[in-house]
Design a protein around this nucleic acid. Structure first.
Length: 411
RNA sequence: GUGACUGUAGCUCAGUUGGUUAGAGCGCCAGGUUGUGGCCCUGGAGGCCGGGGGUUCAAGUCCCCUCAGUCACCCCA
């Protein structure tokens, strides 16, 4: 037996649990203020759902999914992203029949069989938001404002929003051809990856990291100049609303998303401190995806944030000790203090009471080690006098309280 | 899937051209100190040297394989 976590999958250990809770609580609070409700799809879906939604030829579907047969012989997969499951639920439960827009958020683990590195795990966690049955640019803007507000509340700093428009089903094919016409004559000069990209997704050649490819594509046609008037108007309105809301962003004509379903507005939130995996959030509009999955002819837009990447940008978690430690010297003291401690806990106070068998020195060392804010020492003498010393470990000050006052002190 | 670097105590790391019984600091436990912690002193526990194979009289050290970690490519959040 291998006593070792699966590669690329990590245990969440204290004190980091505090960071995770803070992110999740802040996310729920922020998303709900914008009218989002939580939708939790299963972690596993039919493989065909992801193949259809994410794109048959994407790397995610082709080589990164955890796919296996269940005992009934069906091909099922661990979700590599959240949108597909949310849309499936939206269609299956006919949520589209009631008036939109509908706003959902999903928080949880995603799975991709990648080679682990900084900011990249095989089980990672995303905060995911979708607005469905929303065709107008107001939805795009609202979502981006919400994302910006959330990142600001986390006080991460140094994050840039990159914004682009990919065009729609009617104008993107023309652009794609225009780009291919530009790339084809210099195919031999491009890196092997870009030559492959020309087959699969030529737009990706635009953000290649190889210097030679960047030089060769310097004068390549760019998206915002090539989209149709409708897409251009949509994009202009999104930017106008963002300006009104005071959201700053950077236009990035070469920003391309890797999932097939994105159209029109796309965006990414990046931070240089993260190393190679610099995107903390990414998303965009996916008009046409609902109908592609057999749903209604409604539009949608969404984003996902990588929780591990957010947390890497936060200051490290500090151990926080209990508010009070009761040091009971001897069984008699323990018996008296036990019900009191239980009552304090009932009120929500964090209280520790180690077993009675230890020496005073050991108890005091423990109080220090667990960083208790205050210590009450109770032994034979205190029981006899009815006076309990309560010591503040920060200031070193000590005061005497009766048992009654002691309980009241923490009310 | 490709490449580079790294695996020695709970943690951070030493360990010589291969050579006796593998070390340090921190942490942990106990004592110095019989009811007041942090500092100091003393003692103690704790190691399949990631795993397997090979070379050798002899391997933590050299070679091969493997697993894992880290970073980068790729991909993406």
């Amino acid at each position: 037996m291998k006593l070792q976590a699966i590669r690329g999958m990590k245990d969440l250990l204290p004190p980091d649990d505090r960071l995770w809770r803070r992110v999740e609580e802040l996310a729920r609070q922020t998303f709900m203020a914008f009218g989002f409700a939580e939708l939790r799809p299963p972690l596993v879906e039919h493989t065909s759902l992801f193949a259809r939604a994410v794109g048959q030829t994407t790397d995610i579907v082709e080589k990164e999914m955890y796919t296996f047969q269940d005992r009934g012989g069906e091909s099922i997969s661990l979700r590599p992203e959240a949108t597909a499951g949310v849309l499936r639920a939206y269609i299956e439960h006919k949520i589209y029949a009631s008036p939109g827009p509908h706003k959902f958020f999903t928080i949880g683990p995603m799975f991709r069989y990648d080679r682990p590195q900084k900011g990249r795990l095989r089980q990672f966690h995303q905060l995911n938001c979708e607005i469905l049955d929303e065709a107008g640019p107001e939805g795009d803007a609202e979502l981006l404002v919400m994302l910006t507000q959330f990142l600001a509340k986390l006080e991460l700093g140094n994050i840039t929003i990159l914004l682009n428009s990919l065009g729609c089903a009617s104008c993107r094919p023309a652009y794609r051809q225009k780009l291919l016409n530009f790339l084809l004559p210099q195919k031999d000069g491009l890196c092997p990856d870009c030559q492959r990209r020309m087959e699969l997704n030529p737009l990706r050649a635009l953000d290649c990291k190889v210097e030679r490819c960047q030089t060769l594509t310097l004068n390549a046609p760019e998206l915002p100049d090539s989209v149709c008037p409708e897409c251009a108007a949509h994009f202009a309105k999104v930017r106008e609303l963002l300006d009104l809301a005071g959201v700053s962003y950077k236009l990035e004509p070469r920003l391309v998303r890797g999932l097939d379903y994105y159209q029109r507005t796309t965006f990414e939130a990046v931070c240089g401190e993260l190393g190679a995996q610099s995107a903390v959030a990414g998303g965009g509009r996916y008009d046409g995806l609902l109908s592609l999955l057999g749903g209604p002819d409604q539009q949608g837009i969404g984003f996902a944030m990588g929780m591990e990447r957010l947390i890497m940008l936060m200051p490290p978690a500090q151990e926080v000790g209990p508010r009070l430690m009761v040091a009971a010297l001897g069984e008699a003291a323990y018996t008296v203090m036990f019900p009191l401690v239980m009552r304090l806990r009932e009120r929500g106070l964090t209280v520790e009471m180690p077993p009675a068998g230890k020496s005073l020195k050991a108890l005091m060392r423990k109080a220090d080690k667990i960083k208790a804010a205050q210590v009450a020492i109770v032994g034979e003498a205190e029981l006899a006098s009815g006076q309990i010393p309560l010591k503040d470990l920060g200031s070193g000050q000590q005061r005497l309280l009766t048992l009654n006052d002691f309980c009241r002190a923490f009310a």
